[in-house]
Design a protein around this nucleic acid. Sequence first.
DNA 1: GGCCGGTACATTGTCGCCTT
DNA 2: AAGGCGACAATGTACCGGCC
Length: 250
Amino acid sequence: MAENRVRFPRFFKVFLAETASESLSIPLSFMEELADPLPPTAKLEGTGGRTWKVSLSKIREGAYFTTGWSKFAEEHNLQSGEFLTFVYDGHRTFEVSIFGRSCCKETRAVAEMVELSESEEVEEISMDDADDALAFSDDQEMSDRNSNTDVIANPSFDTNLKSRIYELLIPAQTIYEHNLTFGRTVKYIDAEGITSGERGKWADNRVCFKGWDRICRRNRLKMNDTVTCELLHTRKEVHSIRIHITRGTA
DNA sequence: GGCCGGTACATTGTCGCCTT
DNA sequence: AAGGCGACAATGTACCGGCC
């Protein structure tokens, strides 16, 4: 199935208007995939088949899409909380896919009208970029093939800032409900990029992951903020946790 | 026989203490 | 300061007995 395809390096970001409308940071862990020195520009290939030229800037140790990014964001009508995947061809082109809040891949800023049968479009979601970044649960995948309802495809749970900030506890109920398994590490994905955490060892086999303090700190979490942790998995094995933060009002 | 309330036990979430 | 792990409180569930 997917194993025969060329595996280009890829990363994904959650778009937040307040931090990413003018520029977008490229995850530090992705820097090793980029040429050194950094090329001055890159090409973004949108979901509608058009391309945008953007500047690549190195700020401190990180790289950013700068000039041209805001135009891309505007023309794709990017909204906070939407999920973007970037597939890098190894030269200068990033193929960008947009997953709206329905968790389905969306086509925006089209170059021309292209007739796409429903089955083709869904196939693209499940076979292409989504297989690494977004893993749909078996049940949800089936339902998404038949409808485009506004539901969250991946298991998720809510948490908030605890006194024990360096561990993230995965609720047993969530694990049980979705029959999930976990490896030795998990990737945390938030608006700032990707970081990873190792699994903690608890006597009663409950599941918790370290490195959560980095997420708490870089997102400046407060006690009244709600953090929705979306569990991205492949065949029920969770490989990443996507972080959505709802700021409290108190 | 079916329903309801009380109790016991199991499970889970959080926190504190000790070690590194 | 960070991490490991146990203690304990809170919550959920199963079981049992009494009543209608």
